[in-house]
Design a protein around this nucleic acid. Structure first.
Lengths: 334, 334
DNA sequence: CGATGTGGTGTAAACGATTACACGATGCGC
DNA sequence: GCGCATCGTGTAATCGTTTACACCACATCG
């Protein structure tokens, strides 16, 4: 593959001039510029980003470590990150942690070795030594969707407390009193926050918080199904099951269907996180939607600021309730 | 960030020895090895992959350019590719072409500059000059899912002819005669193949191929919806709509629902490509499933072979029919 | 007319790793 | 004790860029 030396030779100039033409970094005479361009075209020269990165100590690449690439929430998030990065001229290397801390660390390590300019991390579980070291080493880092307490790292996330409150209000209006929640892992900030939001929303609306209506899941479909099964076998089963993420909602849906129960007639279903196919189910699933596009874009911009050495504030966007028909019909909508 | 020089100084050896310890590339005395290890740990040294790549002319990174990251088929494919690559110690940089040739080329260009060791490409539309040049330049390349005719590039893909035939047989057995197909773009090999398979399956089963039952779509949901709308407004609408991919099936589903029609009572629906939520719909959607995991894994292995300089044969796996209930009940299953 | 820019260019030193080559110290066979 | 292989090590070149620095030619200004 042709190098700047080859281009220089063919154009009859020095490598410095070639580099100057390629980067517009200094004045070059029109003649030299034209000859360099011609040589570049003739040789099909492509700058070697590896060499450039070594010299400039910048890769124009960021890393994105997500929780689970098969979770449509993260897929959409990755897509948004890519889009924004591309407009900024950055490449994105995606690592799929598969919700496993050791795999998260694997990718963080690899990305570190690849010398990404910055890292977008959706942390899996608690702080690992590697993450702590990375922060300490001063690599530009931004948490996305999830945060880790006690680290000086800005986070870009969505707050769902108001939306959860609106959901509980909606359910109460429909006459429901017995509402169950299948939570995410307490190790994850999103897991904790959603549970807290649910509990305080119940309290605020004067509904009883029954411990047996709190099922612990792990953001995967199987746990949603298992949680739903336990809830539905309670002597007094809940009127509505609220799942802490879309995968657990899917699991709960399976279990409800497998038992031959009807939604919302026999039991209502709601989900944290909205995914496209929720609207295609019968009935469509009531969900709490996060501004995923914005989350991704803002995270990239925040990281770019950090890479440029500027301080950034945490970003908190608002999730919102999307009322559909899976918890019962609202007057006027059926 | 610490470099080999720092490690060498701290360990009291030369950089060559450090490198030898790190790569196990030659005999090193136990004492020196231990001192190097200690220095590495103390400094938290991480090798700079950028420098290493420059010197060794290998990045241990492959590129993957997919058609549309929001299409669950490609998401799953990307996941499989990542998994296999990881076991081989390779990193994957994903580019999302969004089904746009210019965006595909953008990523190919970037990946070329990043000097990936090889490229997995799900080509969007016809051969672009860049792709032709890339092949000519000798970069290890493997086509995945889709192929481009006339290029000396091995492809890893799934053949669906038998599955489409089985689908038509299944539909015929259920008493259906009027079967419509919403095709993918004829520019894509997968679009063409599926249409051909459909037409010859009809012929083989003695069913009429009616031109008005062939709707041209583009693998996106909107075109599936539009195609279904036109089909359903025909004087003699089809008994079953077979969509050329999962997104168009989604669009068709929307249109069918919007018209208040029942599946399969009023019209049947089948889809090429299976996605997890098909089984969660009511009724579950009959689909043709591709061995996505295998496709991804085989593609990575084929590319690794090419990178190693060994020739590889094209790989053709078989898609298979997954009978569910969206085209009518088979005896014994309802 | 000499001093002082300034525009255009080239030379060579980095960046951080790998590795060819050279070299001294041992061990071994004869 | 000599020759020779082997082991362990260090020096320095190299990969393909960018860029500090030096330089020359020319214009401008007092």
């Amino acid at each position: 593959m042709a190098s700047v030396k080859d281009v220089a030779k063919l154009a009859g100039v020095s490598v410095a001039t070639v580099s100057r033409v390629l980067n517009d970094s200094a004045a070059v005479s029109p003649g030299a510029r034209a000859r360099v361009q011609a040589a570049v075209d003739e040789l099909g020269y492509r700058p070697n980003a590896v060499a450039r990165s070594l010299r400039t100590d910048a890769t124009r690449t960021i890393g994105l470590v997500i929780g689970d690439i098969l979770n449509p929430f993260f897929t959409e998030l990755a897509r948004a990150v890519e889009d924004e990065a591309r407009t900024l001229g950055l490449s994105v290397v995606i690592g799929n942690a598969d919700e496993r801390p050791e795999r998260q660390d694997h990718y963080v390590r690899t990305l570190l070795e690849q010398r990404v300019d910055g890292l977008l991390l959706c942390p899996t579980a608690e702080i690992t030594p590697l993450v702590r070291d990375t922060v300490a080493a001063g690599l530009p880092l931004v948490f996305l969707d999830r945060t880790l307490p006690g680290l000086e790292v800005p986070a870009v996330r969505a707050d769902g407390a108001a939306a959860v409150d609106a959901l509980v209000a909606h359910l109460k209006r429909l006459g429901h009193r017995r509402i169950a929640f299948v939570s995410g892992p307490a190790l994850l900030s999103t897991g904790r926050e959603r549970t807290d939001a649910f509990i305080s929303a119940l309290a605020r609306h004067g509904l009883e918080v029954r411990p047996e209506y709190l099922e612990a899941g792990d953001f995967q479909a199987a746990s949603g199904r298992a949680g739903a099964a336990r809830l539905l076998e309670l002597p007094e089963p809940p009127e509505v099951i609220f799942a802490g993420d879309n995968l657990m909602a899917l699991g709960a849906l399976d279990e409800i269907r497998a038992r031959g129960l009807r939604i919302p007639g026999d039991v209502g279903l709601a989900s944290y996180d909205d995914v496209p196919w929720f609207t295609h189910l019968d009935p469509p699933i009531t969900a709490i939607g996060q501004p995923v596009q914005d989350l991704g874009r803002r995270a990239v911009r925040a990281l770019a600021e950090r890479v440029a050495g500027r301080p950034v504030e945490p970003v908190v966007l608002q999730a919102r309730l999307l009322v559909r028909r899976s918890c019962g019909e609202t007057e006027g909508s059926g």
